[in-house]
Amino acid sequence: MDTKNIMIVGVGGQGTLLASKVLGHVLLGQGYDVKVSEVHGMSQRGGSVVTYVRYGEKVYSPVIDKGEADVIVSFELLEAARWLEYVKPEGQIITNTQEVEPMPVIIGAAEYPRDLAEKMRAAGAKVDAEDFLALAGEAGSAKAVNIVLMGRLSRYFPEIGIDAWEEALEACVPKKFLELNKKAFALGR
């Protein structure tokens, strides 16, 4: 098989690291070669963050380049638009509809573009946009939005059974938050 590419994008501090940990665990358990890549440090202070997850028989490059992503999972609407050029024309975007204003918008130096989900669709992208933050709240914590998004991602991988995802949650999430996260996963799925 060809190497498959999933990008997880968001704003520093939104919990993208746990999402990529769970996803990496699931894919390794399926017997694939896997690479997960992200940049630590400066950008984590509220900046735009990206994690690359690649899997297949043999994975070489640790990064995903423009036009290569099969799926982009975005924690925030503007970030989905920022990374749009990375998705394959036939690829899938899954995005939270939450809007987090970046500093240039807060101080009035730039505007937050409107109707981004519609514009991305008009550009030819397949966009699955929903208020995943509300689903996380329903599960018991806004912080569980990362696992809600993994739940939705799992929809697009019917070949991977629910057991594999639950096993990954058990391995990656602290015990006291496990039930909450299982609920978050189910709500997203």
Binding site: V11, G12, M42, S43, Q44, R45, G46, G47, S48, D65, K66, G67, E68, L78, E79, A81, R82, L84, E85, Y86, V87, K88, P89, P102, M103, P104, V105, A109, A110, E111, Y112, P113, L116, K119, M120, A122, A123, G124, A125
Partner: peptide, 20 residues
């Protein structure tokens, strides 16, 4: 050849890191 990409016309404001 490089892969084909999608794009929208809107300018995407940067999201630089900030002091917490």
């Amino acid at each position: 050849e490089e892969p084909k990409t999608l794009s929208i016309a809107d300018a995407i404001p940067p999201r630089p890191p900030v002091m917490c």
